[in-house]
Write a protein that binds this DNA or RNA. Structure first.
Lengths: 211, 211
DNA sequence: AGAGTCTGAAAAGGAGGTTTGTCAGATTGC
DNA sequence: GCAATCTGACAAACCTCCTTTTCAGACTCT
């Protein structure tokens, strides 16, 4: 009874070491899953090799590959969500259209900033499993609620028509995602400002009462 | 030198037999791929069993499972495309908004008619391989061109503003698909007419010049 | 210095899938 | 009726991957 089971090793605590390995796995997964051929062709072995860690350590941090993808999806989603929340705060004083534009620009910039993140969120996550599908829909519903809250506030200020925007908000999210996906896939040439302009126009068209 | 290599067997020609087996494989694939757990969990063996045919025959008709998925995707796409083209023809005389509504209703009805087809087109096809991604983008571009042609015609009749609708059309397609997916996934309760109404409003908002 | 713990590599066990080859029996044209 | 062909089932060969376990060496604390 002498050895020190305090958990520190290499100068770091057990927690620090675990966190760092988790980080390394997630970073490697962003590379492996976010680029062709993506998650479907990925393997635990390859991921570990890319992360410079062993399969043993992998199974100490994750249950399986899908677990990694799920966590990565949350991280990626948080990233864009933070960007939008920040933009919402910054643009609090602006007029409706300018505010919408600022927020949408922030989202588009954050989402397209790294192609791998975009691919994780829009492609790799789709149709993997029932659990991931649930997680994705839960996350999406947060976006819907965010839009609904803003629409309510805008309606109170008289900047938007008063009605139930749930379906419209869902459709709009689909428009944003579809547009970003096709844009980054090179389906059409456009500047970010053009893309944002179209999205602003689309949103204004929905929010404003019909002529 | 006596046996008759004419190809007829069981009363059918070789072509007919091949076509029928192809049909049976595709029908079984619609079941296997279009429902959870879907294409990712599918196997040649299970597909053959469901089709009541053998793996040997499978490899005479298809290169591999992805080949089946690709062909199925084309079939599913043709289905909705035919529905829309028919609606376009039928509504040739109607006013702009009524026409848009008729066509969108036809699309929504065709797309949601069979959940398995919808899932193939919107979920299972995503992120499988570079080849399938190409095929999907090619098919999507046909929808964009269709919308662009209609927008040009509408602009000539003075029913829509004259401008480049390519980006807007892409966004709109994303909206339609996203909305249908979330709707059929049970994210919100709505009648088909409500869904169509929202899509019509969205499209009119885009097409009409800003107030 | 030494008991006790943590690390990372390697491998073994096990499961599942794809694709090709074989073969007995059914069916054809002559 | 008979040779030639087609059919559908079966299984063998092969491969890849996941997951757990083992183990020698590095490290920490007393």
């Amino acid at each position: 009874m002498a050895g020190g089971p305090t958990g520190t090793y290499g100068g770091r605590s057990a927690q620090e070491r675990r966190a760092e390995r988790r980080e390394r796995f997630l970073r490697a997964a962003l590379d492996q899953f976010g680029d062709r051929p993506g998650y479907r062709a990925a393997s635990v072995t390859a991921l570990c090799e890319a992360a410079g860690l062993s399969t043993r350590q992998f199974y100490e941090e994750f249950r399986n590959l899908e677990d990694v993808l799920a966590q990565l999806h949350l991280v990626v989603n948080d990233w864009t969500e933070q960007a939008v929340l920040a933009a919402l705060g910054d643009s609090a004083g602006l007029a409706f259209e300018a505010r919408i534009r600022a927020v949408l620009r922030a989202y588009v910039a954050a989402a397209t900033d790294d192609p791998r993140r975009l691919r994780i969120a829009f492609v790799e996550i789709i149709g993997v499993s029932a659990a991931l599908e649930r997680q994705r829909l839960v996350r999406r519903s947060r976006w819907v609620e965010l839009i609904l809250a803003e629409a309510r506030a805008a309606a109170e200020r008289g900047e938007a028509a008063e009605r139930d925007y749930r379906i419209a908000a869902t459709a709009f999210i689909g428009a944003v995602n579809g547009l970003l996906h096709d844009w980054t896939a090179g389906q059409f040439e456009a500047s970010m400002e053009q893309v944002v302009d179209e999205l602003v126009a689309l949103l204004l068209g929905v929010v404003r009462p019909p002529a």
